[in-house]
Design a protein around this nucleic acid. Structure first.
Lengths: 347, 347
DNA sequence: TATCAACACGAAAACGTTGTAGCTGAGAAT
DNA sequence: ATTCTCAGCTACAACGTTTTCGTGTTGATA
């Protein structure tokens, strides 16, 4: 096991100064051609790589992005990470991930753990618990300390920073409109409690679509699931709620605010003997593996997570590398959505 | 935007030396009670946090783990990451992720990008391309430089390091045995080309089960898919292959080496009018969202990715923190598997 | 009064880099 | 012969910590 060579050992070995080695490797014109060759050859031989940590300390930049998300076992978030990684790597940045598990406390800890010089900036989608307790001090303090944050998907209006979202309301309106256009008369929605910003917005879109089409609102057709934490563990709970929803209501169109709700609804609908899409048409939000491979394959709205990730990384890195002394104003990027028509909708 | 306070500015402000501040904050008995209080109060007020980078440089430890995986949009890998994260966080470590996208080149780049002081050790599942070109120099060089590596799932026998795997052969044997016990007479397998170690091993398990039960081997029933890269993008290609496989063979039991193969097989079987599990029983490998929510829900082998991640992190951190001068011998942990019976098998 | 321990603190080095400023010697210009 | 220029190199500070080794002051002891 050969130790990692440093400038110092190369210098000693070649009987020159540390500065000479450093400059030779960076091709400085201060150094003679002969010495340069010698140093470079030696460095290559011993596989010298500048120590990143030392550089970070000197430059006060780590070239590392901190990404904090609620959970990683989740198709949407992983596509976002892919996008972030891609752009970050292209720009020479690394990505460090922190998981909040939808917990406020863990989110704070993660933030603090990284906001001590480890990273240059954050990309974050806040935990449901954070949204529900409305305590954002950790975020504002981080920004105060000069560490930029980019929020994506689940964002907080009160915090000023760059944001990347889809236009949830508008997109949802479009989805519901499609259901209407396909002949649905009684359209339901399965959403989350309102503290989840995206759930709220998507519900608004639903409402708007009904209004525009002069369809009377029936409150019973709105099911708001309270899954403060991970809903994958509470599958039976979810099923129960949807089951009683179906028992009390007859619908021919359903808009679900995420994939899981959509396919779970499909499942209980099938148990009730409903044919999809003949008796019931369904559109989900988020295009994941589930939608793609469900039976029948689910028509969904694609949020283009990869693009969201790319865009988030782009905004963050731009801000980090912006050398203008004047602060750039904060931007909110809206990435477009698409309805991916599969087999749970007609036509 | 208040700048991050350093020991130096605290020292200047309080008119003491840097050493005093440092010691006071670490509760050294060298410092008088009064001064300690003063320093601590000030530090709290200005929200002082020791700069991690400086610490890393000094201690030659970053308290950061590098995780390199082929892709992140993949249920198994994300559960593993969850496990790694959990244990790492508990031990005060951060996790930096690199994606190889199944590409040898990207794997090498990622490794080099991090093996310059940024991380203390690696946890890695190698890319398919790496396995197929059999070029492992980047791995052995990293280990040579004193950076420990833990491999999980896709491991390389020739490289000596800690490893975390499931007993693929044994597990597969068990799965096929179950098929046999449930009355299957003609059992097929959909696997990968042999350069993927896990594909090879799982095929071996299949073979062994047949042998033990004195069932004659029919080579035609073995389908080896060549998906050198991401198979999610080549869904049609996969479907085609499976389609012609079904066309040429009649089977009543199928063991698929991963989730995607299993549910794709289900799909084409259904197209052929086969009833599952009446006409065809299927068992997949890897328990992901797809299996759980498929129709019908797929009987699978759970690899317990979370445990694999935990165990990997555990092995790595143990090695990192082992202060004995004598090297610990390398370990290979085998995490147990379970057959999760759902509705694609009888009984 | 001289010695000594205990106490409270400070100076400096080290981790690996880079950039600025300074130094040296040789040849050219005066 | 003196000054100047320039190439080619070295010294040093700085980034923020921790830690080792002082050092000065006090009060007690001989």
């Amino acid at each position: 096991m050969k130790q990692k060579p440093t400038l110092k050992v190369i210098a000693k070995e070649l009987d020159v100064s540390v500065s000479t080695v450093s400059k030779a490797l960076r091709d400085s014109k201060e150094i003679g051609e002969e010495t340069k060759q010698k140093v470079k050859a030696f460095a290559k031989l011993y596989n010298y790589r500048p120590n990143n940590i030392a550089l970070s300390l000197k430059n006060k930049k780590t070239k590392t992005l901190g990404v904090i998300i609620p959970e990683i076992v989740h198709h949407f978030f992983t596509t976002v990470i892919s996008g972030i990684e891609q752009h970050a790597n292209d720009k020479g940045y690394n990505v460090i991930v922190g998981l909040s598990n939808e917990s406020f406390r863990k989110e704070v800890i993660n933030l603090e753990m990284l906001a001590n010089g480890s990273i240059d900036g954050f990309i974050i989608s806040v935990a449901k618990e954070t949204l529900s307790v409305k305590d954002y001090h950790h975020l504002s303090e981080t920004i105060d300390q000069g560490i930029p944050i980019v929020m994506f998907d689940r964002v907080i209006d009160e915090i000023e920073c760059d944001k990347v979202i889809v236009d949830d309301a508008k997109t949802s309106k479009k989805a519901v409109q499609k259901l209407i256009d396909s002949g649905c008369k009684r359209i339901g929605i399965i959403s989350t409690k309102d503290y989840v910003s995206v759930g709220k917005l998507r519900t608004q879109g639903y409402l708007k679509a009904l209004k525009i089409n002069k369809i009377d609102l029936n409150e019973d057709l709105i099911l708001k699931i309270d899954d403060k934490f991970n809903s994958d563990d509470n599958l039976e709970f979810l099923e129960e709620q949807i089951y009683s929803y179906f028992k009390n209501n007859t619908i021919d169109g359903l808009f679900a605010v995420n994939e899981l709700y959509a396919i779970t609804a499909m499942k209980v609908a099938r148990q009730k003997g409903l044919k999809i899409p003949e008796d019931l048409q369904i559109i989900g939000f988020t295009d994941g593996v589930l939608s793609k491979h469900a039976f029948p394959p689910l028509t969904t709205i694609s949020q283009h997570g990869f693009e969201m990730g790319m865009e988030s990384a782009k905004l963050l890195i731009e801000r980090l590398e912006n050398t203008n002394d004047e602060e750039e104003p904060f931007k909110t990027s809206i990435v477009k959505t698409d309805i991916i028509e599969r087999e749970t909708t007609k036509l």
